[in-house]
Structures are given as structure tokens and as C-alpha cells.
Write a protein that binds this DNA or RNA. Structure first.
Length: 204
DNA sequence: CGTTGGATTGGCT
DNA sequence: GCCAATCCAACGC
């Protein structure tokens, strides 16, 4: 399967909502030490901006979120709820705390390895949800700051962009502030979108 | 220093 | 639909 070249640094150096929408259809890959490759086609993401009360970067840099303030094209991994990791793509110029949360995707390669970590073989339960995606890929705080453009481990490939008519923007999931911003982007009707909220969400 | 609650998930009612 | 699990960053005193 042809997944294309790594997305260039310039891809990430744009406004965070533009990057978020453009991430749909792109492919996150990881090369495991045993040679196997994991690949997932992104179908659901959320944008988080520095002036955004819901964003980790809202109150400035800390030990936990400093990667968000670094150069674009890096992986920001955080730990939450005492048990889950979540993957984010850092955007914008260095010094600006913005990132895109990767919420769900369609597994393309390495489903066996993903199933081992997830404890299920159901393809729809492997990467459909931010915590699930991180677990399926085996990524933790150790991988925080990884370079998605040239890094040896995790990269983001071109894949195939999703057409506008297939993209839906809704409010974000699981937050108590800034909920009015329609910054959750997903592929309409795609079976691999997470449960968080139905595709045709009406709640405000 | 103690408390609170979170960009979630899975299991149970 | 509801809630416990389980850690730690943020915030208040």
C-alpha cells in the first residue's frame, strides 16, 4: 500500500485549525524495533489554540506541555485520567502553544501488533478514540517531542487528503471550556470515528 | 502542602 | 446511561 512521503515541515507551520482539517486522511506510521510497521489513516482530530481555555497551553508553558511551545511537526504526548496517553501534533511557529489532538483512525497496517496491545482484535476498537490510538501505537511520555518529519520512530505521511464534502466540523469532546468552538474535524460517516459524539451532533 | 478534576475508557445497570 | 479506575498538574491556603 502506498502511503506517500512524510509531510514537510511547512505543513505544520500554519494556523492550527487549518492543519487539523488537513490532517484528515493522512497516515501516522510507527516502525517497531522488530521491523513491523504500524499505520493508521486519521479520520478524527481536534484543534487546540493558545488563547483557548480548553487547551493545555492556555496558562503558559509547564514541564508537561513544553513540547506544545516548541517547533512544529513534533509529537506532543500527555498522560491523563491516571491511565491514558493522548497523541498531538504540534503546529505553528516555535513559541506558540498550539496542537492537534489525534482522536481516531482506521488501522491500515500492523493490526496484529495493535491487537496485542489493545487486547481486542476488533478493528473498530483498535484506534477509535485518543486513548486507544496511543495504546495501539504503544506511545507514551517517552515519545513526547518525537520529530514527525524526520524522526526514526514515528512519522506522518501524505496519505490521501479528504475532500471538503466529506469533512464535518463539530464541537470538541470531553471539555468544559471553549466548547462553542467547532474545532473537532471528522470524516462524515466513517465507521472508525470515535464514540465521543455522534457524527450528526446537535448538542451545543 | 492538600484538594480537585481531567482533551478517557471499559464494564456494569 | 453511569461510574470507577488511577496519576498528576494546577490551584488554593
Amino acid at each position: 500500500m502506498r502511503l506517500g512521503r512524510p509531510l514537510p515541515r511547512s505543513f505544520y507551520d500554519r494556523e492550527v485549525t487549518v492543519v487539523a482539517r488537513d490532517l484528515l486522511g493522512r497516515v501516522l506510521v510507527r516502525r517497531l524495533r522488530d521491523g513491523r510497521r504500524l499505520a493508521v489513516r486519521l479520520v478524527e482530530v481536534e484543534a487546540y489554540a493558545p488563547d483557548d481555555p480548553a487547551s493545555h497551553s492556555y496558562r503558559g508553558p509547564t514541564e508537561r506541555n513544553r513540547t506544545m511551545f516548541g517547533p512544529p511537526g513534533r509529537l506532543y504526548v500527555y498522560f491523563t485520567y491516571g491511565m491514558h496517553h493522548c497523541l498531538n501534533v504540534v503546529t505553528g511557529p516555535a513559541g506558540v502553544g498550539a496542537a492537534v489532538l489525534l482522536r481516531a483512525g482506521e488501522p491500515l497496517e500492523g493490526l496484529e501488533a495493535m491487537a496485542e496491545r489493545r487486547g481486542t482484535r476488533d478493528p473498530r476498537l483498535l484506534c477509535s478514540g485518543p486513548g486507544r490510538l496511543a495504546q495501539a501505537f504503544g506511545l507514551t511520555r517517552e515519545h513526547d517531542g518525537a520529530d514527525l518529519v524526520r524522526g526514526p520512530d514515528v512519522r506522518l505521511l501524505e496519505g490521501e487528503p479528504v475532500l471538503d464534502e466529506r469533512v464535518v466540523a463539530t464541537t470538541r469532546v470531553g471539555i468544559n471550556h471553549g466548547t462553542e468552538r467547532p474545532w473537532r474535524f471528522l470524516v462524515a460517516g466513517d465507521p472508525f470515528v470515535s464514540r465521543g459524539r455522534p457524527t450528526g451532533s446537535r448538542r451545543s
